[in-house]
């Protein structure tokens, strides 16, 4: 598995790469904020339940929504630091040029899948907004959660296109 650790990652050069990198980091931090808020809310609910017999109403629903939002916002950063797993066993002895071609294709496929999911999510968002679908207890509209998810998948696609571009540059070498 070509799994780089985040600290080994070299920040991209060039204005485009830097802008994308910044956006991915921004989304990751946004996800981190949602995750941290979720943890604090759960702790507050447990304390409320144990000490005062008053849990936070709808805490389970908020955790579900928060989970979906935070993990999706983590996806683009993971691609920017080449964190998504590949199996490199079969190609261990291939020349770098072949690897660059394969990795370019793989990144393009990832981008295609990410844009497909983003497109469908955007349609899903519109439908849920129209139908008034909401959570059971707090009646939080479900489509709220889709609002950060759609740009996250778009950004994942852009990050994958960028890595495809970087890989393609290695092909002639």
């Amino acid at each position: 598995m070509g799994e780089a650790l985040a600290h080994e990652h070299v920040r991209p050069a060039g204005p485009l790469g830097r802008a994308l990198d910044l956006a991915c980091r921004g989304f990751a931090l946004g996800g981190g904020l949602v995750l941290s808020a979720m943890a604090l809310m759960s702790v507050a609910s447990i304390v409320g339940r144990a000490a005062f017999g008053k849990p936070i109403t709808g805490d389970f629903e908020l955790v579900q929504m928060g989970c979906a939002i935070s993990v999706t916002m983590f996806l683009p950063f993971c691609q920017m630091v080449r964190g998504h797993i590949i199996v490199d066993f079969f190609t261990a002895r291939m020349p770098p040029r072949v690897l660059a071609i394969l990795d370019t294709a793989a990144s393009v496929l990832l981008a295609a899948v990410a844009f497909l999911v983003a497109w469908r999510l955007a349609i899903g968002l519109q439908e849920l907004r129209g139908s008034g679908d909401s959570s059971m207890i707090l009646r939080v509209p479900t489509w709220y959660a889709y609002v950060p998810m759609v740009p996250s998948f778009v950004l994942l696609g852009l990050a994958a296109l960028y890595t495809a571009f970087v890989n393609a540059l290695k092909v002639p070498a």
Partner: peptide
């Protein structure tokens, strides 16, 4: 699916 069995109440507000 062609047929489902579910609770309308799961989709509160709808």
């Amino acid at each position: 699916a062609d047929i489902v069995w579910t609770l309308p109440g799961y989709s509160a507000g709808r």
